[in-house]
Design a binder for these strands. Structure first.
Lengths: 341, 341
DNA sequence: TTGAAAGCGCTAACAA
DNA sequence: TTGTTAGCGCTTTCAA
């Protein structure tokens, strides 16, 4: 008995088979077996007779069968997909200045991939307006608006956050030890004999606030002074403006901790424009060890985060969560990259 | 009549509601309406009486209902999700040297987001081993292996490619006009009086081959000479090694076209190490206008691609395809960023 | 303005 | 080794 599979699809042009939409039922009829056997054969189930499997596989190939993933997702109650919610579209040609760069996504991807999970990238507004089918979420950044966390929380999906790791175990957070990063930055400047220090960065971000906290604490311990502080966007322009504001306010400092490398470059440029030399008059240290930090003149000292590992941890924790485990928050050490600035 | 929704879910701890799994059926019973009315109310269907809608919405909120996207995807035969297949995991701290940087993904995301589509990132092996539910695919890079295209083609899904745009309309391709880029690079060097030129890059990549083609053609027209050529990975180290190979082979040149900025930096470093000055002895031009190009010393001249627009075009075309339209391939102009090198 | 029936395409569970 | 039954949770279609 012969079944004309193509005949079941009414609207198709002959040159370009519009949508063959061959289902397992079709294959089953063609092979003279049940739908179930087809399913087993295609998924490599060991109990299928080899000859049967081969016949089914051949027919599937021949008819261009492709599994309907959406159907399987529904039936299995699992999508093998994790959503990554980013705060901003990762655009602009200044990937350098992005707080959550490719490396973090890279780490996440590697780990998800090795567990045969997919990753869907989304923004918070899109996630709310048109949610993708996922088993769990990774939230990149609590940002200034902690309502991002709220929004995600109310979806009822398991989630983990990249950000500031406090003791609060309401949610699972992975992040660099920003407080330690701040202390290390202070140590670096103090070690060069700097005593009047300034901080530049937006401490409405929890992570930045942590850096400032560690920085200020260490300065205090050492008996030096935090003489100034200015908020800044994560860009060179932001750093430039912030430094100018500080100088205009009459602040006198010989060391600056900028909360990103892009900001640090802006600060350095501004200092020079104002007639100061870097690092002789003022030493500057940034954060992130961005690709450009080593290329800038002078090369920019920085605090390096292990983004790759961070991404992997995020992925591991969310996968554990979806499997019912109870992973813990984790904070990762940072390290200094001392350079000319 | 009262329905205890939570009672339908046997295994749940009281402190942390494990999986409420409230369905529309549950809401329907609780609201004393049909499943269908619940569906309509939740999706904002205009024919639902306001009071009914409000009651349903309230109950949904109260019971923490969340739509099962997988079920909807199956029923609607659409996932509102586009897959982006990248060739490599976007890792390493040298995002600078990545051929397909964040900006391209950024452009894609912006466009997809504004059409309420999601984007799932995947690699070719993962896509084959564990395909996500998508309506279409964007392939980033034909790469060296054109079998990537084959693999994708046989899934039967609509797809578009970022890469070298030839006349071939077998598949829809978006890409920069790499041939023109090569010509512009040649012009730039020739304009500085350089006559003995070299090319560094892996012309097994179709896009790189295009750049070389344009470069060589223009040189030829001008009566100058392409005196050497070496393959290279897309990294600084690759560029360094390639330049050394070229020098070791006895090639004498006063201008180099490197197929990426990272390569160009490696080349410059190598030339210096060999006692040549840049740009006096040898002028160098790169490709991509990577973030680091302007920061390097000397700053690196480069050919800029409009990745943001490229991403948007890719997204537009794939969306058009999934809607049954027949969009065309498109090649985008590039522009020169002349700097010190 | 609402509802009943049907089924999207697949696989878990059980039976043979 | 294979098949049968019964849905997964939603929306389309048609009827009221």
């Amino acid at each position: 008995m012969h079944h004309d599979l193509t005949g079941t699809t009414p609207q198709m042009s002959r040159d370009k088979p519009e949508s063959p939409r061959v289902t397992m039922d079709d294959l089953a009829k063609a092979a003279g077996v049940s739908k179930m056997t087809v399913s087993r054969a295609l998924s490599g189930h060991p109990l299928v007779k080899t000859s049967t499997r081969e016949r089914v596989l051949h027919l599937a190939e021949q008819h261009g069968f492709r599994l309907n993933i959406a159907a399987r997702n529904l039936r299995q109650r699992s999508t093998r997909t994790i959503g990554v919610v980013i705060e901003m579209t990762p655009s602009h040609d200044r990937s350098m200045s992005e707080p959550y760069p490719l490396s973090l996504l890279g780490g996440i991807m590697q780990e998800l991939t090795s567990h045969a999970y997919n990753m869907v990238l989304t923004t918070l507004p899109l996630f709310v307006a048109s949610p993708p089918a996922v088993d769990g979420l990774i939230l990149l950044g609590q940002g200034v608006h902690e309502d991002a966390v709220d929004m995600v929380q109310r979806t009822g999906l398991p989630y983990v956050i990249w950000g500031s790791v406090d003791g609060n175990e309401d949610h699972i957070t992975i992040g660099s030890d920003n407080v330690a990063g701040g202390r290390i930055a202070a140590d670096h400047l103090l070690g060069q004999g700097r005593r009047a220090l300034a901080f530049i960065g937006d401490d409405k971000h929890l992570e930045i606030a942590d850096r400032l906290r560690g920085f200020a604490a260490r300065i205090d311990e050492a008996g030096a002074t935090l003489v100034g502080q200015a908020s800044s966007r994560f860009t060179r322009e932001g750093g430039y403006d912030a430094a100018r504001t500080l100088l205009a306010g009459g602040a006198v400092f010989d060391g600056v901790f900028a909360s990103s490398d892009a900001i640090a470059m802006g600060v350095i440029t501004c200092l020079r424009d104002a007639g100061h030399t870097v690092p002789d008059d003022v030493a500057v240290i940034g954060f992130d060890d961005a690709p450009g930090a080593a290329l800038f003149t002078p090369s920019v000292s920085s605090i390096r985060q292990d983004w790759d590992r961070g991404g992997k941890l995020l992925a591991q924790k969310i996968l554990a969560l979806t499997k019912g485990a109870k992973p813990l928050s984790e904070s990762m050490p940072v390290e200094i990259k001392a350079r000319e600035s």
